[in-house]
Design a protein around this nucleic acid. Sequence first.
DNA 1: TTCACTATTGACAGTAATTTGCAACAGCGT
DNA 2: ACGCTGTTGCAAATTACTGTCAATAGTGAA
Lengths: 157, 157
Amino acid sequence: MTDPAGTPARAFESIDDVFSVLRIEGHRVSTPCRLVLEALFAAEGPISVQRIVEQSPIPEFEPSSAYRNLERLESLGIVRHVHLGHGPSLYMLVGSGEKEFLLCERCGRAASVDPGELDAVRGRIQRQFGYRARFGHFPIVGLCAQCVAADKPGTPA
Amino acid sequence: MTDPAGTPARAFESIDDVFSVLRIEGHRVSTPCRLVLEALFAAEGPISVQRIVEQSPIPEFEPSSAYRNLERLESLGIVRHVHLGHGPSLYMLVGSGEKEFLLCERCGRAASVDPGELDAVRGRIQRQFGYRARFGHFPIVGLCAQCVAADKPGTPA
DNA sequence: TTCACTATTGACAGTAATTTGCAACAGCGT
DNA sequence: ACGCTGTTGCAAATTACTGTCAATAGTGAA
């Protein structure tokens, strides 16, 4: 909902939906491609290339192939990635529950929320600066409630 | 203004102020240390280690020394760094105009604003999620006014 | 001013996350 | 089943750092 002239944002019900799209677009559905998508469909949240590769049953599955597949899937609007802190990029399927992220720079915990929840924040930023903020690629970074509390003078660390 | 139990946030008028603090804290003012600070004082905005090193007149000045000095200066609250996009960390002096950043993920331009300008946004985020957001380390990322306009249906790319 | 102590350096190797080059291989339309 | 060419595995390259260590050079004291 509300995706003006952006990514298609179609939701894929199953892996086979994605395979169809890939073939229609003239791509091949290879084993690494399949493995990447299986990992993404199985994952709870955003996952790293390392996780994708090491949980695969085929030992010769290379990170470079995972990167190449993810890159293509991303260019087709099927996958996107988020940068949570200093670690590697984390990949997830588009459409299956759009999320935006708040990251605590102290404890490292990331909270994911539905985009609607950030519309007020986004609205204020757009009115004030003309920016349309997206917290799905780079999160909102700061201190979470717990770390804010731990920071308060009078509260011992 | 408003720095509850955080970094000292003293402003350094000159390089020599910094040198004094370093010596008082028991550190030595070496040539690389001097070069790093000169680069930071001369810079218009946040700069990379690469820029610091390659604009130095001493050819044997190593990036690793720059990193070590920046790390210490940062731990003393004299320097901080920001991540603008996928490139290397960018370093700047603390105190000489606290800034927070808005980054356009399309055109790559970063706008810097005074923290006060983001207080309304920050307040809303804190009330809604309990997070105290800081956009001085990771920026607000989205589309700037120009790129939003270019994105509008009816406006050719 | 010289001395000695040791923080800091240059040089270089190491690491993590990717990216690139290329010959061999394997999807897929026919 | 065939063959075209998109993809792969493998290896080497790249980028942004981080770690090691003997040599050097700031600093306070003599």
